[in-house]
Design a protein around this nucleic acid. Structure first.
Lengths: 160, 160
DNA sequence: AATGTAATGTTATATTATTACATTTAGTAT
DNA sequence: ATACTAAATGTAATAATATAACATTACATT
């Protein structure tokens, strides 16, 4: 680890404000299309998640959110997370019990999540071919696949 | 779901006693080779895990183990699980917070875990090619991979 | 038998997540 | 505008999963 964790974000420096704006716009569009409501709480929690590319835990989110809404409880966060995941705006990283914002929520995608164990930045890599292979393998075993989770831990460029 | 969950186990009926015997023999061999101790607690917890192919939670294990050792505590189980995972004898299913015995602990393997959401039976499918692809993809992004988790939920042959 | 290390015992607590039910809010129909 | 309805949120409690810290015991080596 010869670079500081935040020296770069993800693979390359980027205008993070753009990520935020993009995520929020996608959220509005997706919710409108689905006919569901992106309420103030849900929107704010999405913003908090998307404020970095680091995986964030539900109780970390709660701490942040409480600064603005003292009466927030764990269930406030979990409800919002459930909604956002259902809408495809947020993904849960199972191996961390933490959450990240999705940068491609409007696009159908099948991805591997790369997780840097040093800086906790996590990002998705499209891996449709891998999905295809795994689904085919499972069907050969008479398995009917539904959800595939692929998480790769390691060190990102900045942290290695 | 037109068959009962236990009508068949995994993909085909099998002599489950053989799985147990095999797992325990592997465990002895692996521990001897590594120079670590398969104590009574560790062995018994491995047996409990391997008594079926269903993913089992730590507290379920605790309940079972307590029938034989009233003074067992959560940490008793977690310590044994840590040991068994370190030895490659048990895998954690991250998306379930549950554990399964490994049927090929002595062999180097890179696998996808197929998890039936009806009967909870889980089994590994070798997927080296998929690992290769994902590792290569990640390296292209200057990511240094360590651990890859692949979990496929769905319905097994018996339950679909 | 004395020693050092690994394993286990014991208590407490941290972390993650859900259930149940009351109340409020927002959209819809009248 | 008003009443109705369903969705969202408030609130309290608790369930489920996991770890920390320190004391004691067992085991292998000398």
């Amino acid at each position: 680890m010869n670079k500081t964790a935040d020296e770069k974000v993800l693979q390359q420096p980027h205008n993070h404000q753009h990520c935020m704006t993009q995520a929020l716009q996608s959220a509005e569009k997706i919710c409108t299309d689905k006919g569901v409501r992106l309420t103030a709480i849900r929107k704010r929690i999405l913003e908090l998640i998307c404020s970095s590319h680091k995986a964030i835990g539900a109780y970390e989110l709660l701490d942040l959110f409480r600064k603005e809404d003292m009466k927030a409880k764990p269930v406030t966060i979990y409800r919002a997370l459930d909604f956002l995941m259902e809408a495809g705006l947020v993904h849960k990283i199972e191996s961390l019990n933490a959450f990240i914002g999705c940068l491609q929520a409007e696009t159908q995608h099948q991805s591997v999540i790369l997780i840097c164990d040093n800086c906790k930045n996590a990002f998705e890599l499209d891996a449709s071919s891998v999905y295809k292979t795994i689904f085919a393998m499972s069907k050969e075993k008479q398995f009917t696949p539904t959800t595939l989770t692929i998480e790769l831990h390691g060190l990102c460029d900045s942290c290695s």
